[in-house]
Each structure stands twice: as structure tokens, then as C-alpha cells.
């Protein structure tokens, strides 16, 4: 509050804007502090010393203050509200801004999907990365559907929320989060790549995940994960190599290359492991427990387990 107009002091010196410490007696200052402590912050702003009428003016000052604060808060709230409303409107209106990144031909998408699994030898020439988001978005949506299928077939359950919600969150958070992280690492290591290119590259690389998750769910090998590890190494490795080639062709120093490539490879491969095992281990543990303990257990144990529930039902 830089506005000083509220402070009207009839007893004060007119026109003094600078506090002259020499011209004020010590007693005057002490009276000033003792008389109106509730608005003593006024002293820091105002150079006008207050006399005997200070207590009278402090009342009107407090009221004025309250009114002004109220007005300001209302104004601030209104501004914040209109700003967020404008932002929401802009997001919908700015769909046009995203359109260029969705401007592809079906054949291009097809070839990009295929080439996401074909690593190229890094040469001096920069490998091209499209700034396109249609393909990655569709790959992520497909991955969500496959994940839903996997969760269902593994009897995964979510305590709060829905399966589709968690699949959606995991996939999109990985896509955006990993892209952000890789962008940061690439920025630090001076890789010549834009954030949209990273989004596109990581998104297309998820195509390999889709294949692995699909095959891993359809071809069920319950207690033996060899098949999955094989797919993980081959298909996941191919898409990682593809990304590594792109990064290598755009980076200079060997240390930087290793750093960025290592980050991408770790993120990519561990995400695939996570997707495969996160929604599966719990069920397997339960099924193991059921097979090992409950099935060979004597019948009396089962009766004990069942009996209380019958009692409860009878009571109700």
C-alpha cells in the first residue's frame, strides 16, 4: 500500500515528506509510539508526527484500511478469476496452435512407426526427427488400451480411482515427464534437439512397448519370464538404439553422448519393465499363496474361515 492519501493529520506538519530526525524531540516520538500502536506501521510510511488527535484519526484510519483491503482483495480475486477463465478459454482456442504438429499423411505415420524400430548408424549428418505429435499420441493411446487389457487379464485392482484412470495417468505422465527430463539433460549436454522432437522421438519409441506388452499379455507364460525378457531385450533394445543413434548424431562430446543416451536408455527400458511387472506381481503372489497354502490346507481351516461370515449373515 503505497497510497498515503488516507493519512490526514490536522495536527501534523504540512508538506514535510522527509523524516528529519533532528527536528523531532525524543518525547514526541515516544508519544507517537505509545498512542497508536495498532497502526504503528503507519509511522514507517508517514513522516508526519501525530499529536494528540492521533487516537481520533486512528479509528477512521482502521475503517478506511479495512475498506481498502476489502476492495483490493475483491479486485485481486476478480483478476485471478478472469485470468484463469481466459487461460481455460485460450487452451481451447489454442488448439489451432497444435494443429501443425498433427499435420501428417497416413503413409508418413506408417513409415515412422516402422523406422522407430530400425536403428541407424550415427554419422556426422544429423538424423532427422519429425516435429509431429499425431503418431506419438496414438501410440500412447494404444498403449493405454493394451495396459487396460493387461490389468484386466491380470485381475489388477485399484483402490481409489479406475483402471483406465491409472493407465491413462501412467502413460501420459511417462511421456511428458520423461520428455521433460530428457530435454533438461539434453539442454545441459548441449544436444541440438527441440522439446517437440524429444516428445515425438520418445512417443514413437513407445511403439516397441506396445508390441512387447501385447505379445507378453497374449502369449501367457505364467511363471517363466524368459519370453518377456527376450522381447524386452530385442524390441526394447532396437528402439533404444534408434534413439541413441539420433542423440549421437546430434551431440559432440563423448561424455555428453554417454550421459544423454544413458538417461534415455534407462528411462525407456525401465518403463517397459515397470509396465510388465507392476500390474502382475501382486496377482502372482496371491495366486502363489493360494496354490501353496490354501489348496493343501485341511478342510477344517476353510470351515473356520467361512463360519464367521455365515454368522454375520445370520445375525443381519
Amino acid at each position: 500500500m503505497a497510497d498515503m492519501s488516507w493519512h490526514s493529520d490536522p495536527g501534523g506538519r504540512q508538506g514535510s515528506a522527509v523524516l528529519d530526525m533532528d527536528s523531532i524531540e525524543a518525547g514526541e516520538i515516544s508519544k507517537d509510539y505509545s498512542s497508536d500502536t495498532q497502526d504503528d506501521f503507519g509511522v514507517t510510511f508517514s513522516s508526519e508526527p501525530r499529536g494528540s488527535s492521533a487516537s481520533g484519526s486512528s479509528k477512521s484510519f482502521a475503517e478506511d484500511m479495512r475498506q481498502r483491503v476489502g476492495e483490493n482483495v475483491t479486485q485481486m480475486m476478480w483478476q485471478a478469476g478472469t485470468q484463469s477463465a481466459k487461460r481455460a478459454w485460450n487452451v481451447y482456442g489454442n488448439i489451432d496452435l497444435l494443429r501443425p504438429y498433427f499435420d501428417v499423411e497416413p503413409k508418413e505415420v506408417q513409415s515412422r512407426l516402422l523406422y522407430s524400430l530400425v536403428p541407424m548408424r550415427p554419422t556426422d549428418a544429423r538424423q532427422e526427427v519429425p516435429k509431429e505429435l499425431y503418431g506419438p499420441a496414438m501410440v500412447v493411446l494404444t498403449l493405454i488400451a493394451l495396459l487396460l487389457y493387461q490389468m484386466k487379464s491380470a485381475d489388477h485392482r485399484v483402490e481409489e480411482g479406475t483402471l483406465i484412470g491409472s493407465a491413462f495417468a501412467v502413460c501420459f505422465m511417462y511421456w511428458f515427464g520423461a520428455s521433460g527430463l530428457v530435454w533438461f539433460v539434453a539442454y545441459v549436454s548441449e544436444v541440438r534437439i527441440a522439446i517437440l522432437q524429444i516428445l515425438s522421438m520418445l512417443g514413437y519409441a513407445l511403439f516397441g512397448h506396445c508390441i512387447v506388452i501385447f505379445l507378453g499379455t497374449v502369449i501367457h507364460t505364467h511363471h517363466d519370464h524368459m519370453f518377456f525378457y527376450l522381447l524386452w531385450a530385442i524390441i526394447g533394445g532396437l528402439s533404444t538404439l534408434r534413439m541413441a543413434g539420433i542423440i549421437m548424431s546430434r551431440t559432440r562430446g563423448p561424455k555428453q553422448r554417454l550421459f544423454v543416451t544413458g538417461t534415455i536408455a534407462a528411462l525407456h527400458m525401465f518403463f517397459l519393465l515397470y509396465l510388465h511387472f507392476a500390474y502382475r506381481t501382486i496377482v502372482q503372489e496371491i495366486s502363489d499363496a493360494l496354490n501353496d497354502n490354501l489348496v493343501p490346507a485341511p478342510a477344517s481351516v476353510k470351515v473356520e474361515v467361512i463360519a464367521p461370515s455365515h454368522n454375520v449373515e445370520a445375525a443381519t
Binding site: I95, L98, R99, F102, Y134, A137, L141, G161, T162, L163, I164, G165, F168
Partner: peptide, 20 residues
Amino acid sequence: AEVFVIYWLGASVVTLNIKL
């Protein structure tokens, strides 16, 4: 809830894609 979410989320995603 799941069917509900799939239904409306799916429809909006498809629509958004068409708009994009």
C-alpha cells in the same frame, strides 16, 4: 466408474483428435 470414464474420456479424446 470405469465404464463411465472410458465412455466420456474416449469420446472427448476422439473428438479432440478430430479437431486437431
